[in-house]
Each structure stands twice: as structure tokens, then as C-alpha cells.
Nucleic acid binder design. Structure first.
Lengths: 243, 243
DNA sequence: CGCGATTTGTGCACGACTTCACAAGCGCCT
DNA sequence: AGGCGCTTGTGAAGTCGTGCACAAATCGCG
């Protein structure tokens, strides 16, 4: 076996964070029947500028053809390989409350490289419940199941008060990557990666920009500090045309 | 009248993204009865290092006391002011499927400065449903309700195919900030902010790190690029991934 | 009142990321 | 075969963010 892949180049973190977006755009293009795509077009579909896209892809190697563009299928394979999506990864979801239920039923996980292999909760009243074809198990059972299913990724969807304890259990069960939806900071050993998603934080960041926009409008051109320069569109198409 | 606030300093985006985390930590400290906190302690609670925290806070002004620390209550007020959280902002949630349901029931929004003012869906079968004390309305009703409720923030929890159309409607209804859970790129006019949350992307980023960790272990110390520095220190408080 | 312990605020150097601008490479057309 | 237009890949410059290290400021105590 052994593909001739050149042993995982170590990519800038910012690039890694964008690769999944490129991948999604590429799948979309492939479904639309495109078999090649230019950096300009792909960048547009992914919401970044083309120079950044080319630099990102260049870190993976040279998979484009000058004068032509990128081969969609080849690029998909390369990105999936780099992201470690060549096989479906098993994920454990802990906490089947409000959010946990929604996550358990989210089709996007299944279609994009992951398999929810087990659901856990600490509340005995919830254990045994069937969700989307899976049965909720008690958190105590985590070690055996994690072992049996080769689970390396855990998702925490519990209240903040339980999150650290759950994280400890996950780590003890061999999990080395955690996606944390609880609004709190987790402390984990070296070598374990944690990513955090906090819905309220996202809104608060938007609120800041609302506040700023409002205060800019409210102030009559006071000094020279208005004249909003570039606009702050986050993921607009690109390069704001109008001004 | 007129608070003596010095007209919204324009903060680095990276700082803005961390302020909500500081705010959460501060509320936690306040509830625990602390009335002052050092940069070291607060940084620990927020999962950053103290130099960064001090620099972030210094952008807001000088609200600390040398030799003592920061006044918790004062700092909360300042951060809430800067983030525009002095009043509760009305949010429209569009799409009450799997995820939308969970978001509508998420208590964190209510407790951290937001009020879900209305729920919308395009599916007539869902219109009229009651969720958490709110009734689901048809998307056509958005303009009047957005106006009546002064809604400036919209949350999109629809399938990707509907997201752009919903975004257009939101913008037309006067919304200037959008939180997008649909896995697609939105294009919006200048002056409208968009933040995106994609659950599958978060997992794919973790997958990359899993892949990288696995390949490092697999390779017997080949060149000079392995040599993982830290070893397995117990419960590193912070610095999870560190490149 | 002055001194030492403590902690903030910040100048500076460094590193990471972004953007520009262009040479190099490729395919097509004549 | 040769030239032309198009697109990639990348050096180099610019921007942004981070972290160190220390001066400045404050408190408490003798």
C-alpha cells in the first residue's frame, strides 16, 4: 500500500481552518459537473480571495495546471487525505439535552466524514432513549465503547458544570480531540486538542459590530475618525465592489 | 447626561473575539464572590496568557489598579458596554428544524444579552408551532415583525439551499448582522456582518490534527521533525494546540 | 514616611498571516 | 513551430497579533 504522499507537510493553522471550506466548495462544484476550476472561481465559492487560496493550496503541493486551473477530483482527494478524511472517523457525543439531540440528528456529520458512534449522558432518565437509530448510554460505559469503536474524537454538549468532568473521562478513555459546546474553558493534557464553539460568543461579537455601526451613524462627522475605510464584511463574496 | 465613555476605541478584531470569553469568566468570578481579580487569575479562567489579557484590556482604557488587579464589577460593565450589551438585543431565528429547535430552546442566549424575538420558517407545516413560548411564523411575515421588534441580528438555521435567500430577506428587513449555521458562503451588501458556524468544519479541523498526531507516532523518528517537546505533562492549564 | 512586594500598562522584537505583483508554465490557435 | 493569452506558484513587502520584559504605580507595613 502506502500512497506516495509526502508525509504530511505541516500547514499553517490558518490554512488548515480554511481547507474544509475549500473542500465543501469543491464537492459542490463536482456535483455541478465541473471537472476543473480556477483559483479565482474556487476562491469565490469559498469566500476568500484568490491569492490566499493559491498560497493555501501550494502548501499541499502543486496540484494545479498553469493556464488551466485545478482538477476538481484530484484536489478533493488531496484535501481529504490531508484532513485525514480517507476513512470515516468515529465520534462520541456526550450530553443529549437540547443541543445534543440536534447534533445527534445533524446529517452534516454523516455526509462529511464522520460517524456518530455513540451517545452518552449522565442522567439515568435519558439513558436508553433512542435517537436517530442510536441508543443513549450511561457515561460510565464510555471506556469500553470508546475502545471497541476506536473513538478518538469527542463532542461535549453538556451544561458547563459537567464539561470538565466529561472532558476528563473522554481523555481517560483515549480521546485526543474534543469539540466543546459548553461555555467554559477545559483543561486537558498536552497532546489533546480542544476546539470550542460558543453560540453566545458569536452573537456577542456581532453585537459589538452592531454597537460600533450604530455609534458611527449616531456621531455626526466629529473628527477625522469616521469615514469607515473598508467596511467590515466578514464573509461577503469578496472585495466589496460598491463602496 | 452622556456617559463619559470615550467613543468606542476601535479594537483589534482578535481582541473583540476574546472579550466575550473574559466577560463570561468575570461573571463566574463575580458569582463566586470575588470583587477584584489579577490579570493572571482572569487569564487563567479565560484560557489565555496574562500578557495578552492585559494588552486586550488596555485597549479599553485603564481600568485596573497596579498592585491590586481589576475591579470585577467595573470590568464587567466596561466590557458589556463595549460589546453593546447594555440592552438586550432582539434576534430573529430562521429555520426551526433540528438545529433551529435546539437554538430556540438554548438558555445561553437569554442569559447573555439576547432575546429571541421571533421564529420563522418557510414550511407551512411548521408555522404555528409553539416553541419555548414563541410561535413559529411564516418567513413572509419577517419585514413587519423585524420592524416592530427592532431586530438587527438574524440567525440562519436552514438548509444550505435556502440560506442565501433567507439572508437576502433578512437584509431587506433591515438586519445588519447575521449568524449563519448553514454550510455555505453568503453574499451580503457592504455594512452587513456575517459570522459562520459550521459544525462539520470544526470536526474536520480536529480530524487534521488527529491525522497529524497519528502520522507522527507511526513514523519512527525519521528526520528532525518529530521530537514532540512537552511530553505528557499533567493537566496543562492552557495552550492546548500550540501549533 | 519610606520601603518592599505586587501587579498593571506598554515599548519592542518576533513570528504568523495576508496581499501584491510577476515570472514560469501550459494549452490553443494560426 | 511559434506566439499569445491565461493561470498557477511564489518571492517580497506589508499588516496584524503575540509575548517578553520592564518601568510605573499602588498598597501595606514597619
Amino acid at each position: 500500500m502506502s500512497q506516495q504522499v509526502p508525509a504530511l507537510p505541516d500547514l499553517p493553522e490558518a490554512t488548515v481552518a480554511r481547507l474544509p471550506e475549500y473542500l465543501r466548495a469543491l464537492h459542490h462544484l463536482a456535483e455541478s459537473g465541473n471537472d476543473t476550476v480556477s483559483s479565482e472561481a474556487l476562491a469565490g465559492a469559498a469566500g476568500v480571495n484568490s491569492a490566499k487560496l493559491r498560497k493555501d493550496l501550494s502548501h499541499l503541493g502543486s496540484y494545479g495546471t498553469r493556464g488551466v486551473g485545478y482538477d476538481v477530483a484530484l484536489l478533493i482527494d488531496q484535501i481529504e487525505y490531508v484532513l485525514g478524511l480517507t476513512h470515516r472517523r468515529a465520534v462520541a457525543l456526550v450530553g443529549v439535552g437540547n443541543l445534543g439531540h440536534a447534533l445527534a440528528g445533524y446529517a452534516g456529520f454523516g455526509s462529511r466524514g464522520f460517524r456518530i458512534a455513540a451517545l452518552f449522558d449522565a442522567d439515568p432518565a435519558r439513558v436508553g432513549e433512542h435517537i436517530n437509530g442510536l441508543v443513549v448510554r450511561h457515561i460510565e460505559e464510555l471506556p469500553e465503547i470508546a475502545e471497541a469503536e476506536s473513538i478518538a474524537i469527542g463532542v461535549i454538549a453538556t451544561p458547563a458544570t459537567a464539561a470538565q468532568s466529561v472532558a476528563d473521562r473522554l481523555v481517560a478513555a483515549g480521546v485526543t480531540s474534543i469539540l466543546n459546546f459548553a461555555p467554559c474553558v477545559l483543561s486537558v493534557p498536552d497532546g489533546v486538542d480542544v476546539r470550542k464553539v460558543d453560540l453566545a460568543i458569536e452573537l456577542q461579537i456581532l453585537s459589538f459590530h452592531e454597537h460600533r455601526k450604530a455609534s458611527l451613524i449616531a456621531l455626526p462627522a466629529a473628527g477625522g475618525l469616521t469615514a469607515l475605510p473598508g467596511g467590515l464584511a466578514a464573509t461577503g463574496t469578496e472585495e466589496a465592489v460598491g463602496s
